[in-house]
Amino acid sequence: METLDCISAVARPIHDFGDEFMSDEATGAVGLSAGFAPGRGFYCRGRFGVLGEAPASVVQAVQGFLGPHLVAAGWLAGRPVMPAEEASACYAQAVRTWGRAHIPGDVDVEHFNHLAQQLIDGADALPLFAGWRAQACPGDDPVGAAMQRIHVLREHRGACHLAAVRLCGLSAQDAMVINLGVEQAAHYGWHEPHPVAATRVPRRQRAEQLTDEMQAPLYATLTDRQRTEFAQLVDALTAD
């Protein structure tokens, strides 16, 4: 499989599987049992805790696509519950637990983990992704580890896409409106978002292409056969 074909094949399943985890009530329940109040505290403190005890403005700048007030409120609400490092470890545990419940039992997760780790090890140290790459991943839980590696690879593409959106002359808010619509952009924290001019809409497609191009050197480290196997494994792993 060619490099860009592999990227195209795995981008959406990796993104959507991660979305399912983040939006699942079971994930929220983990946060509640850990002491977080209902809302975005566990999500913000857990996902972005790999950045350490950073100011809310830094967290917002790194994550990019969520509205700044949503991120700041969630980050600050979660701060009294537990330190950032502990929160990210709790979130990683929730990632692995969710994976064990949703990854099909017949997937060759050992081979997936080998290929995914090869990609992770060879990737540029982009913000947020680098923090999650450094997060401990237990060796005695191959299914949970596969889900954590899905999450780490999702963060890599997200970091690439944020840069690509900016390079294409779009704001993060514009990208969210084009991708999801005004109502959903507001749901994700953007205050009174407005429709984007039709002449600017093609820039998002260019941003997607640029994101693929930014990831191409990474996936080029796999052989044609490995890229085919990786795409097949991602498809099987996310088939829940």
Rank of each mutant, 00 (worst) to 15 (best):
T3L: 06
D5R: 08
C6G: 11
I7M: 04
I7D: 00
S8G: 13
A11Y: 05
R12L: 07
P13W: 12
I14Q: 00
D16S: 13
D16M: 15
F21I: 12
M22W: 15
S23V: 13
E25R: 11
G28H: 10
A29M: 12
L32W: 04
G35T: 10
G35K: 02
P38D: 02
R40N: 09
F42I: 10
R45V: 10
R47V: 07
V50R: 07
L51I: 06
S57P: 01
V59G: 04
V59D: 03
V59P: 14
V59K: 09
Q60M: 04
A61E: 01
Q63F: 07
G67A: 13
G67I: 01
H69I: 08
H69S: 15
H69F: 05
L70A: 06
V71F: 09
A73K: 03
G74V: 03
G74Q: 05
W75T: 02
G78S: 05
R79V: 09
P80H: 11
V81E: 03
M82P: 02
P83V: 12
E85V: 10
A87Q: 08
S88P: 01
C90M: 12
C90P: 01
Y91F: 14
Y91K: 08
Q93M: 04
V95F: 11
R96W: 04
R96Y: 09
T97D: 15
R100L: 05
R100Y: 12
A101H: 11
I103D: 04
P104I: 08
G105T: 05
G105K: 10
V107Q: 07
D108I: 10
E110Q: 13
N113H: 11
H114K: 15
H114M: 12
A116W: 02
Q117G: 15
L119H: 02
L119P: 03
I120V: 15
G122H: 14
L126F: 02
P127R: 01
F129Y: 10
G131F: 00
R133A: 11
A136G: 02
G139P: 07
G139T: 09
D141Q: 11
P142T: 04
G144A: 09
A145W: 00
A146D: 09
A146H: 09
I150V: 15
L153P: 03
H156F: 02
G158I: 06
A159Y: 00
C160E: 07
C160R: 08
C160I: 04
L162I: 01
A164L: 07
L167M: 12
G169H: 02
G169N: 04
S171E: 10
S171W: 03
A175T: 09
A175Q: 11
A175V: 04
L180P: 10
G181M: 10
V182Q: 10
V182L: 08
V182K: 00
Q184S: 15
Q184C: 15
Q184R: 15
A185G: 08
A186M: 06
A186C: 03
H187W: 14
Y188Q: 13
G189W: 03
W190I: 03
W190L: 06
E192N: 09
V196R: 05
V196S: 03
A197F: 07
R200G: 09
V201W: 01
P202D: 06
P202G: 13
R203H: 11
Q205H: 13
R206C: 12
R206K: 12
L210N: 11
T211D: 02
M214F: 15
Q215F: 01
P217N: 05
L218T: 03
T221A: 08
R225W: 12
Q226T: 05
F230R: 01
F230Q: 02
Q232M: 14
L237Q: 08
